[in-house]
């Protein structure tokens, strides 16, 4: 565990707390893509199959359980508690276009051709692009609530912080995980446009608005 990894995980935790807080205080899931949130459930469930057969640490165990359960809880909030506030006509990105290619890539580029390894690889690729339906939805509406932008910023910063963590681990432990690194760089890259608007506008007190 190094500082980049720890801060990254804390940013990830923070993003989930911000999202749940937004939904509870506004009693709404407006502006949040159900499809992106559903993809995160798939990501966590397929990645953490190792909960059943490998023990890493208490930290690791608790975080995995938290990510699986909180992502399911968010789906529950969107699907039942705050269902009337979700507008499916804005959430129209086709998730098959993401899941299909990710699965195909996982079958081709993996470390071992076995079930859990392919599921792990699939989850890494899918996480990299899972934000697409959310970004697509914001592109369509052209705006986002400030609290939603804080959520997205924390979520983007999480994976961005994993990059210095991988560099640090290469020098201190000699470990390299090309699948996670390439996917992590792609994932962070997808946030660059968003980060630009977030840091230059939202953090200066302006509303998140995309040019028409």
């Amino acid at each position: 565990m190094n500082i980049f990894r720890l801060l990254g995980d804390l940013a990830h935790l923070a993003s989930i707390f911000i999202l749940v807080h937004k939904m509870h205080t506004t009693r709404s899931c407006r502006g949040i893509s159900f499809k992106t949130q559903a993809l995160y459930v798939v990501v966590f469930v397929t990645r953490y199959i190792d909960l059943f057969y490998s023990w890493i640490s208490l930290y690791n165990f608790v975080m995995k359980i938290f990510f699986i359960s909180s992502s399911c809880y968010i789906l529950y909030l969107m699907k039942y508690r705050f269902r009337p506030t979700h507008d499916p006509t804005l959430d129209t990105f086709k998730v098959e276009y993401l899941a299909g290619p990710c699965f195909a890539l996982a079958l081709i580029f993996n470390y071992h051709f076995d079930f859990t390894e392919i599921m792990w690889t699939f989850s890494i690729y899918l996480e990299a692009v899972a934000i697409f339906p959310q970004l697509f939805m914001m592109q369509r509406t052209g705006e986002a609530e400030t609290i939603t932008t804080h959520y997205l910023a924390a979520l983007g910063i999480y994976r961005a912080l994993y990059i210095p963590n991988w560099i640090y681990r290469y020098y201190t432990e000699g470990t390299v995980d090309p699948i996670a690194i390439v996917a992590g760089i792609v994932q962070t890259g997808l946030y660059l446009d968003f980060f630009y608007v977030y840091f230059t506008k939202v953090l200066q007190g302006q509303k998140f608005e995309l040019p028409a």
Binding site: I56, Y111, E173, G174, T175, V176
Partner: peptide, 10 residues
């Protein structure tokens, strides 16, 4: 050369 990846990340 690089060691194989350790799956201890989240």
């Amino acid at each position: 050369s690089a060691n194989p990846p350790v799956k201890d990340e989240l």
